[in-house]
């Protein structure tokens, strides 16, 4: 799928990484813009109005989380965070500040393009899909009907809400707290109930709950709904 005319802004202070990202995005038909500092990124956002931002968290001048916060004040552009492993707190902060998803370095080009696809997909269609299909899972949001391989699955209201909260981002990650707030309300911070319900949900829709294919755990951050086995 080519992205004719779509503009992508790469923000990273490492030349080699920018080079690699440029090649990858060029190949997909993006018009690639580069910035190496937070300030430059914010300026480019205003001037160039890109359609996609790839943002490194570890920038020299302004923190990546801060950049996200600032650009979210006036822009809804999809933002993909590039982070180092073990920076869970930063990832959560960036996601809470409005980033759409993240990638842990080092990553392969396949993963990169998959994530880009996911976050652009939502953009493309302006209206929410009433029916969500992923592998054998089919969620009919209008009718509150869930089926796995065409068999109906009985969910409690909470479990359904949880599933809907996972489905709505359409493949992007959602943090634990975002899930808690969406399903149980603001001010609800206890993870117990989340874990228990995720477990119940998995038992109902996953062929092998111990090796999930739909509901994937991002340890320490949250969960992601996508269809993949293993990787």
């Amino acid at each position: 799928m080519t992205r004719n005319g779509l503009r992508a802004l790469i923000v990273d202070d490492e030349v080699a990484i920018r080079r690699f990202l440029r090649v990858a995005l060029d190949g997909e038909g993006f018009v690639v813009l580069e910035a190496s500092t937070g300030k430059d990124a914010l300026m480019a956002l205003v001037k160039e109005r890109p359609n996609l931002v790839l943002l490194d968290l570890g920038l020299p001048d302004i923190d990546g989380v801060e950049v996200t916060r600032r650009l979210r004040e006036w822009s809804q552009v999809p933002v993909l965070i590039l982070s180092v492993r073990e920076q869970e707190a930063d990832k959560i902060a960036a996601l809470d500040a409005g980033a759409d998803d993240y990638l842990t370095k080092p990553f392969g080009v396949g993963e990169l393009l998959a994530r880009i696809r996911t976050i652009l997909r939502r953009q493309a269609s302006g209206v929410a899909e009433p029916v969500f299909i992923l592998g054998g899972l089919k969620v009919d949001l209008a009718n509150r009907l869930v089926t796995m391989d065409d068999r109906e699955v009985q969910l409690t209201p909470t479990e359904y809400d949880l599933l809907r909260a996972l489905v709505t981002p359409a493949g992007k990650v959602i943090t634990n707290h975002q899930l808690l707030h969406q399903v149980w309300g603001e001010g609800y911070n206890d993870l117990h109930i989340l874990r228990v319900n995720i477990s119940n949900l998995r038992h109902k829709i996953e062929p092998d709950p111990s090796r999930p294919t739909y509901i994937h755990t991002e340890s320490g951050v949250g969960y992601r709904l996508s269809f993949r086995t293993g990787m």
């Binding site: 117990h192 874990r195 228990v196 477990s199 111990s210 090796r211 755990t217 340890s219 293993g230 990787m231």
Partner: peptide
């Protein structure tokens, strides 16, 4: 440590997923 309530099955699943191709 950032301890929180965890479902051990959840953790095992995440570990297996991380191993990915090595399995």
């Amino acid at each position: 440590l950032k301890k929180g309530p965890c479902d051990i099955q959840d953790v095992i699943g995440a570990a297996l997923e991380q191993l990915g191709e090595r399995l």
